[in-house]
Computed example of a mutant assay.
Amino acid sequence: MDTKKVWLVTGASKGLGLTLVKKLLNNDYPVAATSRDLNTLKNAVGNHNGFLPLKVDLMSEESVANSISQVIETFGHLDVVVNNAGYGQNGTLEEISDEEARLNFDVNVFGLLNVIRKSMPQLRSQKSGHIFNIASVAGVVGNFPGFGIYCATKFAVAGLTEALSVEARPFGIHTTLVYPGYFRTEFLSDDSFKLASNRMDVYKEARESERLHKEEIAGNQLGNPEKAAEVLITMAESKNPALHLFLGSDAYGMAKQKTETLESALEANKELSHSTDFKN
């Protein structure tokens, strides 16, 4: 009897999502994968037994619900959900338009929330499952000039995932919040890394950060997506999977520095913090 877990991976036509799907299929896992463009997804993955490609608009509850139903009809159950779809939006908070900011939240946060909302009934009924929400180290560290909105979307993913972990736990459902650092994928390509339409030269640090990401970091990222995919599979098979998972030594280092900064701020202002309590 086949006991392989059934996976659903969103945003799977490129990057980490595509790498994960291919590795899962090569290891004989049944996989459903989503993309806005079905032909691109099919061409990228190729022909495999146990593969269900799905064209899904993650911002449409109906489209997401239909895709979950197709997964259940095809495989009989759903075990691992990977919310991977998303894109980077560059631009300082003054530069970025309301439309650009809202679209980044729609894709990175509300699309992910739709998948959670529509997959939970199946996972609850099974009393088992595992949800991976792919955030970013930018969901812990926000001091990247020109990345404020993108960081805000990933901070939002971190917050809702922590809440999800305690909400889902009584039903036997595991939750893992993934914070990748820089991985050598197409994330910094024009299709996945969008620049604000109203860029202002006065923001010199943001323009330099933009240039650095486009001209020097792209193609030279430290992280290996093949190894990241292996870690996700290992975590999904673990009996006690982590809630917080940092991928890459760069992500580890930035998060470590942030925790040290917070610890220092806590202690430096401890007296002021305590001074605001009502005293008995």
Rank of each mutant, 00 (worst) to 15 (best):
L20M: 06
T10G: 04
K256A: 12
S13F: 02
D106S: 11
E61R: 09
I131F: 04
N108H: 05
H213W: 07
M235V: 15
E215K: 11
N27F: 00
M1P: 13
D190K: 14
M59C: 13
L113W: 13
E186V: 05
V178W: 05
L78Y: 06
E216L: 09
A251N: 05
N39H: 07
D250Q: 05
Y150F: 11
H174L: 00
F147M: 15
V115F: 01
N133F: 04
S13P: 12
T234P: 00
K194W: 02
V21Q: 09
S192T: 13
L38Q: 03
G88T: 14
T92C: 09
T153K: 07
I68Y: 04
S197C: 02
A44Y: 02
D37I: 01
F246T: 01
Y182S: 14
A135P: 08
I217Y: 00
S192N: 15
K214E: 14
N280S: 08
I116A: 08
H130A: 11
S35G: 12
D28A: 11
V64E: 08
G50C: 05
D191V: 08
F278V: 12
L177T: 10
P53R: 02
I149E: 01
E205D: 15
Q126M: 11
P145G: 03
I173Q: 03
G181P: 07
Y252N: 07
D250Y: 01
Y203N: 08
E230K: 13
K204G: 02
T276R: 10
A135S: 15
A196H: 01
R207H: 11
R184M: 08
V82D: 10
K118Q: 15
K227Y: 01
A138R: 01
H130R: 10
S60L: 04
Y29N: 14
R184A: 12
C151R: 05
R184D: 15
V231K: 06
R211D: 15
V140K: 10
N66Q: 14
R199G: 01
E215V: 07
A228W: 00
Y179A: 14
K42F: 00
V82C: 07
H174R: 10
A229R: 05
V137D: 08
M120Y: 09
G129Y: 03
E94K: 10
G148D: 06
G139P: 08
T153R: 08
R169D: 09
N108W: 02
E73H: 09
E162Q: 14
D277R: 10
D277Y: 05
L188K: 06
N26C: 06
T40F: 00
E271A: 11
E162A: 08
E210T: 07
H174A: 10
Y179V: 09
S249P: 01
T175A: 04
E230M: 05
A85F: 02
E100H: 06
F110V: 11
A206T: 13
P225E: 02
E61L: 06
V21R: 05
T40S: 13
H174E: 13
L20W: 01
F246H: 02
N198W: 00
K256C: 06
L52E: 10
F155P: 11
L24W: 02
E99H: 05
K14S: 15
P30S: 04
N83F: 04
V202D: 08
R102G: 02
K22D: 03
D57Y: 00
S192W: 04
V82N: 07
A242N: 09
N198H: 14
